[in-house]
Write a protein that binds this DNA or RNA. Structure first.
Length: 212
DNA sequence: GTACAGATAAACT
DNA sequence: GTTTATCTGTACA
């Protein structure tokens, strides 16, 4: 499958998000390749989106969101986990797609090792739990702050075209306290690798409210 | 199956 | 000093 070019990311975030479902996220790290099929994402679009980190304006952390689309935005959350986004839209329009869950494809043993190695882990990790959450997938793929701002059209971290899911479901975004009225999380309702959440039942067939 | 507490540090005010 | 786009183990149904 072919690597997604910058034009794929340089669109409205609500177009890019569903288009990433079924694509393959690949990390070619120093100790091998790990990859997975994207089955769940969320859109964060602009300073007017209260849940977007850019709602607070341009800061050191959000600077990458204002830059060229097709770059990685990675941040530390709750002092312990990393979250990976793909910057979308255009320079000056801070927007991104949060990659929330993967179906593991390549490097399963390495993913199991990384996930188990986390200090607080005391039980083995079943394959379904390797990357079914934004923090888990960064752990499984070995992504940290050092990968922040990487160009996704480069040869370290990229996304390849894939087979889109038969259906796409939309729900409120997870873990936020503002902007929950926007159904901007989308996922493959047939995938067992989607993150475990009761929001999976509050679904619609379109994002709403649709605004840009 | 659901509910809750606690871990933990960068970025921000 | 406060906030946070999470995850895990434990408790209970």
């Amino acid at each position: 499958m072919s690597r997604l070019g910058r034009d794929h990311y340089a669109r409205d975030t609500l177009e890019v998000a569903p288009a990433l479902l079924g694509c393959t996220l690949v990390h070619a790290g120093p100790d091998g390749v790990t990859s997975g099929r994207i089955v769940e994402v969320e859109a964060y679009q602009g300073e007017d989106d209260p849940a977007c980190h850019a709602a607070a304006g341009r800061t050191g952390r959000t600077e990458v969101l204002y830059g060229q689309p097709g770059h990685a935005y990675i941040y530390l959350i709750y002092g312990m986990y990393y979250c990976l986004n793909a910057v979308t839209r255009a320079q000056g329009l801070p927007s991104a797609v949060l990659i929330r869950a993967l179906e593991p494809l390549e490097g399963l043993d390495r993913m199991r090792g990384r996930r188990f190695a986390r200090a607080r882990r005391r039980t083995p990790v079943v394959d379904r739990d390797l990357a079914n959450g934004p923090g888990k997938l960064c752990d499984a793929l070995g992504l940290t702050l050092e990968h922040n701002r990487l160009d996704l059209t480069g040869d370290t971290l990229w996304i390849e075209a894939g087979v889109p899911p038969a259906e796409i479901a939309w729900s409120p975004r997870v873990g936020i306290k503002v902007g929950t009225e926007r159904l901007w999380r989308c996922f493959d309702p047939e995938s067992p690798y989607v993150s475990r959440t009761r929001l999976n039942h509050e679904v619609a067939s379109e994002p709403s409210p649709v605004m840009s």
